[in-house]
Each structure stands twice: as C-alpha cells, then as structure tokens.
Amino acid sequence: MKLHEYQAKSVFADAGIPTPDATLASSVDEVVEAAEDIGYPVAVKAQVHVGGRGKAGGIKLAENREEAEQAAEDILGMDLKGYTVERVLVEEAVNFKNELYVGVTMDRGEGKPVAMVSTKGGVNIEEVAEEDPDAIAREHVDPAFGMHPYQARKVVYDAGVPKEVASDVASILTTLFQLWDDSDASDIEINPVMITEDDEVVAADAVMNIDDDALFRQPDLAEMEEETFEDDLERKAGEYGFDYVRLSGNTGIIGNGAGLVMTTLDLVDYYGGEPANFLDIGGGAKAERVANALDMVFSDENVDAVVFNIFGGITRGDEVAKGINDALEQFDEIPKKVVVRLAGTNAEEGREILNDELVTVEETLEDAVQRAVEYAEEVEA
C-alpha cells in the first residue's frame, strides 16, 4: 500500500521528523485559503502516486494569491501520467541551500534492511544509483538488533553530509528506520531532505509504502488505504483482491501470477507496444474472477487491446478456458479485442475449448503479445 505524500508526512511529523506547514486542498478556493493561512511563498503539489511530478507540471511555486490561483487551476484536474489530480498539498516553501536523499529499504540480495544517504537529493535516486552508484552511501542493518546510533552516523559521514547538519540527518535516518521496522514498510524515504540557510533540516517530500500482507497489524495505517486509491480502477482492484498497477500504455495485460504478468509486460515493450497495466488475478481463473479482471481492463479508456497470459497449474487449462468463455459471454459486446495464450496442464484441451469468436488464441506467449500489440496499433491508427 502506497501512502500519499501528505499521509506519509503526517506519519513522519508524528514521529518527530521536521516537515513544512501544509494543508490538503481539493479546490481553487481551498488552495488560496490554505496558502494565505500558511503564508507565501508556497508550493502546490499534486497528490498522485507518480514520480517526476515537478517535471510533469504537477508541482508549482506561488509567491502571491494570483500565482496560487493559477497553480491550483493548472494542477487540479490535470492528467498526470495517467492519473487525474483531485487533491493537492499546499505547503510552506523551503528556502534551501542543499538537498539530500535519505531512505530505508530491504536489500533482498543481502537479506537485510539497508539504510541509504546521498548528497544528490532532489533527483530520481534510481538514476543516481545507475549513473553514479558511489554517490549513495549504504549501511546494512541486522534486523534482530535494529539500527545502532553509530551506524546512522557512519552512513551519514560516508555520504559526505556537511558536519553542521550531520547529527540532525543521522537522527532523521534513525527515526526513518524505526518507522520502517514498526510499520512493516517495504520502503521509506525522504527525497529531498532540504538543508536551509540556517542549517536546519526539513523533509520536503515523503515516500512510505506498506506491505499489504501486514496491514492487519497496522490498523492506523490500514485506515488510510481507501484514500490511497487514485481512481475507480484501483478501488475495484482492491475490492476484487487483485494486484494492479495502472500504466500509461494501450495494451492491457492480465495474468495469473506476478512473474507471468511481468514477463508479459516486458514482451509488450519489447515488441514495440506500451503496457496499460499490471494485473495479476492470482491463482486460478474461475469465471467470476476472469470477468472482474476483464471489467477492469475494459473500463480503462486507454486500453485498445488485451493479452491474457494464463498458465494452468493446479487449475487445469480446460477449466481456465471455460472460465474465460463464461466471463466473455457475460458481455453483450466485447469492447476490445482479446488475445489468449494458454499453457500448462491440459493447455491443448483448453485451447480447443476457447471460443474463437470471442478471442484470438495463440499457442506461444510471443505470438500472443505481438498479436495484441498489432491490434492496439490498429485501433490507435
């Protein structure tokens, strides 16, 4: 579960991490009122789960009432990488001289959490890791003992953080690790931590993602889940129990297994298409579950064609095929072309059962993906 920036900052502030004064707003009038209460200048920031909001026009600075109104009009309702902006965070602008990155995640290769600090804050940390990996200092932490104070100081000094603020940054990192541990987070970060002219440190952004399987242990965070849905599709995915991520392309993807879906997504890109989503319907493919998945993908106006990648394991291929037929027959009209690749137990029997008047059947995943991409390109043309 991804928290919005305003939600994560609330958690951070409660834990003692310095954050700017801010107010959530959903209309132009609310933005102006919040800006005047906080005092200019302010930042108006779109609350959507995408990176690069600033470059995409989702963050604007306002020095006065007129600029606040204009920022609100520009951002509220805009399409930001496939998401409609319905709320913004109006936040006190920070006069800074330097930006840092601070974060905690799980290093699966080491089997341990890792704390990270970089003086190259304010930019995509993945790009920093790829282009200049030495710019990120790392310290692995034994989960049995937690982060020792000396470890926080070490990674801060290894990163080259100015000595005037090193102690404060180490304190923020220690708090972040404790939040990561206590909240069953998968990752948690501040990018950037801003250093002001007075050598104060402020969390100017906030990212906090929680392990969905641990939400039963996090009732306070679980209450925020409904507000984390960006649109009706994500809300439906939560209701149906699907793992779903909306993307910006036009080729819909449905599969029964995360690895299977990821492979399909990569192949869509490889063959020149653009994935519209990640949708894992989980084990089995009974008619109701398949129908729910198709309803979601068909409801996405960006989708022009759908590729169904199903592996029959415990659930036999012929049962899967019956489920797909039953699901499609529930629709009066199939709104998008559907391509099915079926493999695994009783796959041949399943392919024979599939109604080729409703779907296009391909034996290999490569052929199925290429056909779906072609269908999507025909609609786009």
Results as ranks from 00 to 15, higher is better:
Leu3Tyr: 04
Tyr6Trp: 09
Tyr6Cys: 11
Gln7Ile: 02
Lys9Trp: 07
Lys9Pro: 05
Gly16Gln: 12
Thr23Arg: 14
Ser26Ile: 00
Asp29Glu: 15
Glu30Asp: 14
Glu30Gly: 06
Val31Gln: 03
Glu33Arg: 15
Glu33Met: 04
Ala34Phe: 03
Gly39Tyr: 06
Tyr40Val: 10
Tyr40Asn: 03
Val42Tyr: 04
Val44His: 10
Val44Lys: 03
His49Ser: 05
Arg53Ile: 00
Lys55Ser: 09
Ala56His: 03
Gly58Asn: 03
Glu66Trp: 03
Glu67Lys: 11
Ala72Met: 11
Glu73Ile: 05
Asp74Val: 03
Asp74Tyr: 05
Ile75Ala: 10
Leu76Pro: 06
Leu76Arg: 04
Gly77Lys: 10
Leu80Arg: 05
Glu91Met: 15
Glu92Ser: 13
Glu99Val: 07
Tyr101Met: 10
Val102Gly: 00
Val102Pro: 01
Thr105Met: 15
Met106Val: 12
Met106Asn: 14
Asp107Leu: 09
Arg108Trp: 00
Gly109Leu: 15
Val117Cys: 11
Val117Phe: 08
Lys120Trp: 01
Asn124Leu: 10
Glu126Gly: 06
Ala129Ser: 14
Ala129Pro: 03
Asp134Leu: 13
Ala135Glu: 14
His140Ile: 10
Val141Pro: 02
Val141Lys: 04
Ala144Trp: 13
His148Lys: 15
Tyr150Ala: 14
Tyr150His: 15
Ala152Phe: 07
Ala152Asn: 04
Lys154Gln: 13
Lys154Asn: 14
Val156His: 00
Trp180Glu: 00
Asp181Val: 04
Asp182His: 09
Ser183Arg: 09
Ser186Leu: 11
Pro192Val: 12
Ile195Lys: 01
Glu197Phe: 10
Glu197His: 12
Asp199Gly: 02
Glu200Thr: 14
Asp205Cys: 04
Ile210His: 02
Asp212Glu: 14
Asp213Met: 12
Ala214Glu: 01
Asp220Lys: 14
Glu223Asp: 13
Thr228Ile: 09
Glu230Asn: 15
Glu234Tyr: 04
Lys236Tyr: 11
Glu239Val: 11
Tyr240Cys: 02
Gly241Asn: 10
Phe242Glu: 08
Phe242Trp: 07
Asp243Trp: 01
Tyr244Thr: 01
Arg246Gly: 14
Gly252Leu: 02
Ile253Gly: 07
Ile253Glu: 06
Gly255Glu: 06
Gly257Asp: 12
Leu260Cys: 06
Val261Lys: 01
Leu265His: 04
Tyr271Ile: 05
Gly272Arg: 01
Gly272Trp: 06
Glu274Trp: 03
Asn277Tyr: 02
Asn277Gln: 02
Phe278Trp: 12
Gly282Gln: 07
Arg289Ala: 08
Ala293Pro: 11
Ser299Ala: 15
Asp300Val: 08
Val303Leu: 07
Val307Pro: 02
Val307Gly: 13
Phe311Asn: 08
Glu319Pro: 03
Ala321Met: 07
Lys322Asn: 15
Gly323Arg: 02
Leu328Tyr: 05
Leu328Ala: 03
Leu328Cys: 06
Pro335Met: 01
Lys337Ile: 02
Lys337Phe: 04
Val339Tyr: 09
Arg341Gln: 12
Arg341Trp: 08
Leu342Val: 06
Leu342His: 05
Asn346Ile: 00
Ala347Phe: 02
Glu348Gln: 14
Glu349Thr: 12
Arg351Gly: 12
Glu352Asn: 13
Leu354Gly: 06
Leu354Ile: 10
Asp356Tyr: 08
Glu357Arg: 01
Thr360Gly: 02
Thr364Ile: 10
Leu365Gln: 09
Asp367Met: 08
Arg371Leu: 13
Glu378Tyr: 06
